[in-house]
Amino acid sequence: MNSAFVFINLFAFFCLIFAIIKDRAKAKRALVIALNSFFRILPMVIATVILIGLILGFVPKDQISKIVGEQAGFKGILVVAVLGAVLHIPSIISFPLAASLLKSGASITAVAVFITTLTMIGVVTLPVEIREMGKKMTILRNGLSFFIAIIIGLVMGWIL
């Protein structure tokens, strides 16, 4: 476990203090929203945590690295990219999931590609996007995002 959580909590704490000084009523409203969203996301968090336990406890390391690791090559990256584009997981949850995959033998490239397509491309939200932005723009944005996600992943695997 790393110590980033200290920084994160301090940051949130000072923002909250600042908000309370600035506008008490608004800060209270923010806390209510925070509490609601915390409980709304909690079932997903617990489900993810259990899933992570299953992955780390059952799937052998070399199995994961065969599918999404260094040896998997470009095919593995493509699979991960498509998975990320199709799945509809809140990004907050995708990070611990990604960390567990990394821990069990996935490559940095695969993990970075997964996170990027997951957040940038939404197959589920395609109808909304087409309605609001038009067909051309939607196809271009999602298509190009798919490619740049792979490029981002490859560069990250190369520099990290």
């Binding site: 476990m1 959580f5 923002c15 909250l16 600035k22 925070a34 780390l56 059952f58 567990s100």
Partner: peptide, 29 residues
């Protein structure tokens, strides 16, 4: 399975409240 799940759960609980507070603050302010 239980150790891994528990480790990730604890780590999540260490940051999730703070993250939610930040999101709430941004939504309102």
């Amino acid at each position: 399975v239980i150790t891994s799940s528990w480790e990730f759960f604890v780590e999540m609980m260490l940051i999730l409240p703070a993250v939610m507070v930040l999101m709430g603050l941004f939504t309102v302010f």
